[in-house]
């Protein structure tokens, strides 16, 4: 009897908690969209300066590391492709492979994962610390909306920064592949460039960019959600920052799968 109650109680608690979490996430999404797109039209204003500052922080300052990683990944991808394609004597198709995969898949994914580590964690830590030191309460008592003041600037900056970074990352990744293929494998530069241009369609860019846009939403909202969940002191901030990065990467892969499936046909 007690085992039965235990099982039912356990499942019930888990499902209830999941439902509460879902409800809180819906409220967060609703609030964020409301304060980003609807309230500014009603004359409530947007914190542009803060959004620009965050854009610099998330976007411009991430450029060196995103560029470096994308360049290296491009090179690695080219070498692996050459290894496979050499058997068929099709080395010139390395350009197609690297180009399409970079634009459709790896550039959005690598950028998103880097931004999760770099900016998603920073969002959680910032909001979490503000929560611990009662700064969020202070905003509310002043009659200032925490979503408007803290979430919206980050949200705007993120959804604008990540597609830009993705495009630059894709170009650098293709250049990384070019560098390896031309200087290491010894393919003609013109062949590589021509094949790249021929193989990449607008549709590929559309896939990559729409993906990265949704990755940006995931990174920002997970970061914010985990930040507001912080309880206790410094330990809580650390715990939730870890959790933010893990959740974010998991959801990014999940969103990636869904989008790849949608654009597969």
């Amino acid at each position: 009897m007690s085992a039965v109650t235990y099982v039912f109680g356990y499942t019930g608690r888990i499902s209830l908690n999941a439902l509460y979490a879902l409800a809180r996430i819906c409220v967060l999404i609703n609030d964020t969209l409301n304060w980003t797109f609807i309230q500014p039209l009603r004359g409530k204003g947007l914190r542009w300066r803060s959004a620009v500052e965050h854009f610099v922080q998330f976007g411009v300052n991430s450029l060196p590391i995103v560029g470096l990683i994308c360049f290296l990944i491009g090179g690695i991808m080219a070498m692996q492709s050459v290894y496979l394609l050499r058997a068929f004597g099709a080395t010139q198709y390395v350009a197609n492979l690297v180009g399409v995969i970079a634009v459709r898949e790896l550039a959005p994914l690598m950028t998103a994962i880097l931004l999760t580590g770099r900016s998603g964690s920073a969002i959680t830590a910032e909001i979490g610390t503000m929560k611990v030191s009662e700064e969020i309460d202070a905003l509310e008592v002043m009659g200032l909306n925490p979503t408007k003041h803290l979430v919206v600037p980050k949200f705007l900056a993120m959804i604008l920064a990540i597609p830009c970074l993705t495009v630059l990352g894709a170009l650098i990744m293709i250049f990384g592949g070019f560098a390896v293929t031309v200087w290491v494998v010894g393919l003609e530069p013109d062949v590589y460039i021509n094949n790249t241009i021929k193989s990449i369609k607008i549709r590929d860019f559309a896939t990559g960019l729409s993906k990265s846009f949704f990755f940006g939403i995931v990174i920002c909202l997970v970061g914010v959600y985990r930040g507001f969940q912080v309880r206790g002191g410094a330990e809580g901030v650390g715990h939730m920052t870890t959790s933010s990065v893990v959740t974010s990467i998991f959801l990014i892969i999940l969103v990636d799968l869904v989008f790849t499936y949608l654009f597969f046909f």
């Binding site: 030191s133 309460d137 008592v141 002043m142 009659g143």
Partner: peptide, 20 residues
């Protein structure tokens, strides 16, 4: 409505809660 009421309230927090 609460925002309107809060404009007439001030609060000093225990750890001051200044925006760092």
């Amino acid at each position: 409505e609460r925002v309107e009421v809060r404009k007439k309230l001030g609060m000093c927090f225990q750890a001051s809660a200044l925006f760092n």
